[in-house]
Simulated scan of single mutants.
Amino acid sequence: MTLCILAGGKALALAVGTFTLSWTHSVQHTTWWERWEVTGAGLRPVEARVTSAGAGMEAPPDAILEPDGWHYFPKLPLQREVFLAASGATLGGWTLCAEGTCREIGTTEGAPIRLWVAPGCDG
């Protein structure tokens, strides 16, 4: 399937099976990281990591502390679409990585980013 990204009025189509999202928390200035799976029915969060806790960034009770942060497996259902937004309070937006290539998206405050799965990214 194709991961579709609409950011800054531009659409991008990526034929990938997985991707990661990472960003810096606006208050704690620590990194949050998630790995997502692209399926025919939508997007599934499969793994997450936060480097430290605080200011609404608490890891769930079953998270495991490793040298690079708290690791856990999100208990969220399959998502038909995901919306991201930048607060403007951080130094950057979101970093989306897939198949060895990373791109920064969502650097403009208040400009939402839409992620979804579709054969031709029309929708």
Rank of each mutant, 00 (worst) to 15 (best):
M1L: 15
T2C: 06
T2R: 10
L3D: 01
C4D: 06
L6H: 07
L6N: 09
A7W: 11
A11C: 04
A11H: 12
A11R: 14
A11P: 05
L12K: 11
A15V: 13
V16E: 03
V16Y: 03
T18C: 14
T18Y: 15
F19R: 00
F19A: 00
L21H: 06
W23C: 13
T24F: 07
H25I: 09
H25R: 05
S26K: 09
V27C: 07
Q28D: 13
Q28M: 15
Q28K: 14
H29Y: 10
H29I: 07
H29P: 03
H29D: 10
T31F: 05
T31W: 07
W32M: 12
W33E: 13
E34C: 02
R35I: 05
R35T: 12
W36L: 12
V38N: 01
V38K: 00
T39I: 05
G40N: 11
G42M: 04
L43V: 09
R44T: 13
R44A: 13
E47A: 14
A48E: 05
A48S: 14
A48Q: 02
V50K: 01
T51P: 03
S52T: 06
A55E: 07
A55G: 11
A55P: 06
G56W: 03
M57G: 14
P60E: 06
P60I: 04
P60T: 04
P61H: 03
D62Y: 03
D62T: 01
D62R: 00
A63L: 08
A63S: 15
I64F: 08
E66T: 09
P67H: 04
D68Y: 03
G69M: 00
W70G: 01
W70V: 02
Y72G: 02
P77S: 13
L78I: 08
Q79T: 02
Q79C: 04
R80N: 08
F83D: 11
L84W: 05
L84G: 00
A86T: 09
A86H: 15
G88C: 06
A89M: 15
T90I: 01
L91G: 14
L91R: 11
L91A: 08
L91C: 07
G92Y: 09
G92A: 12
G93P: 00
G93V: 00
T95G: 06
L96C: 01
C97V: 03
A98E: 05
T101D: 15
R103Y: 15
R103T: 13
R103H: 15
I105W: 13
G106E: 11
G110R: 11
P112C: 09
P112Y: 12
I113C: 00
I113K: 00
R114H: 15
R114A: 13
L115D: 04
L115A: 06
V117W: 05
A118Q: 09
P119E: 13
P119C: 08
G120T: 11
C121S: 08
D122H: 11
G123D: 11
